[in-house]
Write a protein that binds this DNA or RNA. Structure first.
Length: 238
DNA sequence: AGCTTGTCCTGACTGC
DNA sequence: TGCAGTCAGGACAAGC
């Protein structure tokens, strides 16, 4: 489905309910439609408040009016985000949403279920994480961080129970810590008020190629796994 | 059917 | 200095 498919169908709709699943925001509109929003890489939601942002920017793709009359802009420089409207209840037409794994910080994400998911594929573990099927919300940054923490090589294809449990725990820790720091601003991400998240200063794997591994001192290796830039420690990630 | 590869998009960066 | 070439990646479609 095209990333801005039928976006204008959202016009005039009022949001009855708003929820998040993984990296997606899903709004139920009172016009019997669902609005699906995904920030992609360079997308941000920016509120026109008192911080100087006035929405005059060539990359604003959509603007949402809030109950108090203030405006919220969806800014997406590279158009890697998603802003689609589907008939009510049919947002599962987006393939990744249809097969989205459990929320990582909820009780639905269990060690047992995660190990079952990892055992059900022959894919390399990192691309499998990025598919969003074993767990929702893990992107390139958090995949590298969690695999480093769990001491698992991103190219591993068979993950035993002990290693699976380590990865389960690492994913939850890495995400919870980043949320606590209001996200990772590596380059583009901003909060609605334009501020940066503070988690980038704590990254030990992503973007740290060539720097010594904080655990064993070996220079972190940079390569490509599953078509994505990947950084890992070749000595202590097995 | 499952896995891998290519595509989209554009600002920032690199090298000659 | 200017300009071409390269890189970054979330989701998805195409191809094996």
């Amino acid at each position: 489905m095209p990333r801005y498919d039928r976006a204008r169908d959202a016009e005039g709709g009022r949001v009855d309910d708003l929820r998040r699943r993984g990296k997606y925001l899903i709004a139920d509109l009172d016009t019997d439609r669902d609005l699906i929003l995904h920030l992609g890489m360079t997308g941000i939601l920016r509120w026109r408040g008192e911080d100087g942002w006035d929405g005059s920017d060539p990359y604003v793709r959509a603007t949402i009016e809030l109950d108090d009359g203030s405006l919220l802009d969806f800014r997406d420089v590279r158009r890697f985000g998603t802003f689609v409207v589907t008939p009510a209840g049919e947002h599962q037409r987006l393939p990744t949403l249809a097969s989205l794994g459990p929320e990582p910080l909820s009780g639905a994400f269990t060690r047992e279920g995660f190990h079952r998911a990892l055992s059900s594929t022959r894919q390399q573990v990192k691309p499998f994480l990025l598919s969003q099927r074993p767990v929702a919300g893990v992107g390139n940054i958090y995949a590298d961080e969690a695999l480093w923490r769990a001491r698992i090589r991103p190219t591993a294809r068979r993950i035993g129970r002990a290693r699976s449990d380590r990865l389960w725990h690492a994913i939850r820790t890495v995400l919870a810590e980043s949320i606590e720091r209001e996200g990772t601003t590596f380059r583009d991400y901003q909060m609605v008020n334009g501020e940066s998240g503070r988690n980038a200063d704590f990254l030990v794997a992503y973007g740290q190629g060539g720097r010594p591994c904080p655990r064993c001192g070996e220079p972190m290796r940079k390569g490509v796994v599953g078509g994505r830039g990947t950084t890992w420690c070749a000595r202590c990630q097995r």
